[in-house]
Write a protein that binds this DNA or RNA. Structure first.
Length: 294
DNA sequence: CAAGGCTCCTGATAGC
DNA sequence: TGCTATCAGGAGCCTT
């Protein structure tokens, strides 16, 4: 399940293999993959054709490729199982291939090491997709204006985040997953950062102290940077990086998926609780259930 | 308006 | 063996 580190790994792959290449042809093999492009698959295809990609950017789990001279960007979200693969044009189609982008530089040359490859969006569960949007003056596709900066963004405002937590009547894990407060954190890294911070997922945010918030943000960043250093994490074989190389990192997980296994800090068996149609993993000893607040 | 819950989707796996 | 139920979950959208 791609979260920020995985998406950043993909972005770097795109920067290396796809930036500055001109689109020759786009093929949409599943309409759901372009459902956020409201004008439809044919419109998506026609608008990309003949244009050159710029350098890809990312915010949280979203990434986008500017389309030069159009004022627009191709926005991509991997959802739960999406992959962006750069593949030789003659490699067999993946079972869940949804979108294919062919380039105008297929005659490989010494100057074009990427020649002979195409970009493929592969997605089993079809929660992800691609779409084309106007780029706002700050360089962001207009439809993700509501997505907050992510914790690895130098302009992320720690103090504003703390104040937002204090204002909200919500709980800490909900807040971590709220992409309008902080982006890029998904279920896995939320559980990891909370475990490191010894915070229970249902702890109210309204009375968090500034040092607690600072500690939590520090752990969020540590967990993400550790994953980035290894090239992204996943234990779900669905996740593959931009060149089709698996980005496994599961051995370093301290909380997620460790139900019944001893807490790496105190040895108490870890627990799993159904939570918001998913799961929360935590140590019942280190991460005490909060007292009922107000 | 804020908060919480529903829903989209496919495939692996468990259970009967 | 083969069927059904459950689980994985990001984020837009709907309800309260």
């Amino acid at each position: 399940m791609p979260e920020l580190p995985e998406v950043e790994v993909v972005r770097r792959g795109l920067e290396r293999w796809v930036a500055h290449r001109t689109v020759a042809e786009v093929e949409v093999l599943h309409p759901r993959a372009v459902r956020r492009h409201l004008a439809g698959a044919d419109d998506f295809t026609h608008r990309l054709k003949g244009h050159r990609f710029g350098v890809p950017s990312r915010r949280g789990k979203y990434l986008w490729l500017p389309l030069e001279d159009t004022g627009q960007s191709v926005l991509a979200h991997l959802g739960m199982s999406g992959q962006l693969l750069v593949q030789p044009h003659d490699s067999p189609d993946e079972k869940h291939l949804r979108i294919r982008v062919r380039f105008a530089d297929m005659q490989a040359s010494a100057a074009a090491a990427a020649g002979g490859t195409e970009l493929r969006f592969v997605d089993q569960r079809t929660f992800g997709g691609m779409s084309l949007h106007d780029t706002t003056p700050d360089g962001l596709p207009d439809v993700i204006a509501h997505i907050a900066r992510d914790p690895l963004d130098p302009l992320f405002d720690d103090e504003a985040f703390h104040q937002a937590l204090r204002r909200k009547r919500t709980t800490i894990k909900r807040a971590l997953l709220d992409q309008s407060l902080i982006s890029g954190v998904g279920n896995i890294y939320a559980d990891e950062a909370l475990w490191r911070s010894r915070l229970h997922y249902d702890r109210p945010t309204a009375n968090l102290t500034r040092p607690r918030t600072a500690e939590l943000l520090g752990h969020v960043r540590d967990v993400m940077n550790a994953a980035l250093a290894v090239g992204g994490t996943s234990f779900d074989s669905l996740y593959v990086n931009v060149n089709g190389e698996s980005g496994y990192f599961d051995r370093s997980l301290d909380a997620y998926g460790r139900e019944g296994l001893p807490c790496k800090r105190c040895g108490t068996p870890m627990r799993r609780r159904p939570w918001m149609n998913r799961s929360s993993y935590f140590c019942p000893q280190c991460q005490r259930v909060p007292r009922i607040a107000s």
